[in-house]
Amino acid sequence: MDKNLKEHLMSYLLGRLSCQDVAEIITEYLEGAMSLSNRIRFHMHLGMCRDCRNYLEQMKATVQTLGKLPPEPISPHVREELLRRFQHWKKG
């Protein structure tokens, strides 16, 4: 069978995902919560679609960015109050 035809037939049988579908199930993919058949369809779409590959990379980069944001320290007066309460608790 012609390779192209085979691919088309496969994607038809598996159910082709649109870019919108990909964007809607991307977290399912990143969370490893996707069924095998959806994962195959997902990868097939990505193999053919640079836009969605970019989207996936943007999503991963977003998560990475959020992981690089340190929390702001608490204000010194709250910190002092806490240490004071700890001393109090220790005595009580």
Binding site: S18, C19, Q20, D21, R50, D51, C52, N54, Y55, E57, Q58, A61, Q64, T65, K68, L69
Partner: peptide
């Protein structure tokens, strides 16, 4: 073209998360 991106996402370069953070 239903279901396609209207404005396709761009490729971000490798150092983007660092720069953004």
């Amino acid at each position: 073209k239903a279901g396609h991106w209207i404005e396709p996402p761009h490729a971000w370069d490798h150092g983007t998360p660092e720069r953004l953070a």
